[in-house]
């Protein structure tokens, strides 16, 4: 791949290994993971269940320390959670007692103990961005899963992070909402150009959203098995999927994931 070597990648994994102590003994989840993610790049991570995708993300987030190797963000070794990273979880897990606006500003309140007027205005803008401005004073109680996840995305964007980590953010949604959210995320990304690490189980979602797709091998000792560029131009629509090179990519991915050809 034609990476300009003068530019430090946004995220770099160097020979990362992750071992867990489990009841059944040591579990080598990740081994020899090498990967560079460029600034403003949208990366999708695919891989068999339990291969260590979430673990990869937790290491970038500074929530887990790798057993060996290093992960650096903008050239700095990750030793603790950083301020320039936002996380969207699989389940939105909003605070049921707080309004949508309070949920979006929660990270600030939690970190600093108070929330400024500017941050509230920004929360308002973000809720507008995800199409929920009219509901900002409601509590999440009766919102649909899609709406809750929108709030989760707004919450992750509040401190304007350079890097957005998303761990299967749409997997709890129904198929239609899921597709809709995919397009919305693409719009948000085109507007804000964050570096995104997007974990998913959906090949179509990965192909539609990502610049590059990383396929992890089977665990234990999972590593990067394939690193594929997505050929279609942006913005991608349903029509992009009809391009023959896209269909080739999809069937190739289906092939390696379904037949467990990933070594």
């Amino acid at each position: 791949m034609a990476v300009n070597t003068n530019v430090t990648p946004a995220i770099q994994f160097t020979d990362v290994e992750m071992t867990f102590d489990t009841r059944a003994g040591e579990l080598i989840a990740l081994q020899h993971v090498n990967l560079a993610i460029n600034d403003h790049e949208f990366i999708a991570v695919l891989g068999p269940s339990g291969c260590g995708k979430s673990t990869l993300m937790r290491i970038v987030a500074g929530l887990l320390k790798p057993s060996a190797g290093t992960v650096s963000v903008h050239g700095e070794n990750v030793v603790e959670p950083r301020d320039d990273i936002g996380i969207v979880f699989q389940k939105p897990t909003l605070l049921p007692w707080a309004t949508l606006e309070d949920n979006v500003v929660f990270p600030m309140k939690h970190k600093f103990g108070r929330v400024t007027q500017e941050q509230r205005e920004r929360a308002h803008e973000l809720l507008k961005l995800v199409g929920l401005a009219s509901l900002e004073n409601r509590r999440p109680g009766r919102l649909s899963g899609g709406m809750q996840q929108r709030v989760g995305i707004a919450r992750a964007l509040l401190h304007n992070p350079d890097i957005l980590l998303m761990d299967e953010p749409f997997s709890a949604l129904d198929a239609l909402t899921r597709e809709e959210m995919g397009y919305e995320l693409q719009n948000i990304w085109q507007e804000h150009r964050k570096t995104v690490m997007f974990i998913t189980h959906s090949i179509v979602e990965a192909v539609l959203l990502a610049d590059r797709i990383i396929v992890m091998s089977h665990g234990p000792g999972a590593h990067v098995a394939e690193d594929l560029r997505v050929p279609a131009p942006r913005p991608r629509t349903g029509d992009s999927m009809r391009l023959s090179e896209m269909q080739d990519l999809v069937s190739h991915l289906r092939d390696i994931l379904m037949t467990k050809k990933v070594a």
Binding site: A61, I87, F89, P107, H110
Partner: peptide, 13 residues
């Protein structure tokens, strides 16, 4: 939920 605790940790609160 674990996610909220992870959120808390990721903020170094």
């Amino acid at each position: 939920p674990d996610e909220l605790i992870e959120l808390s940790h990721s903020l170094k609160a």
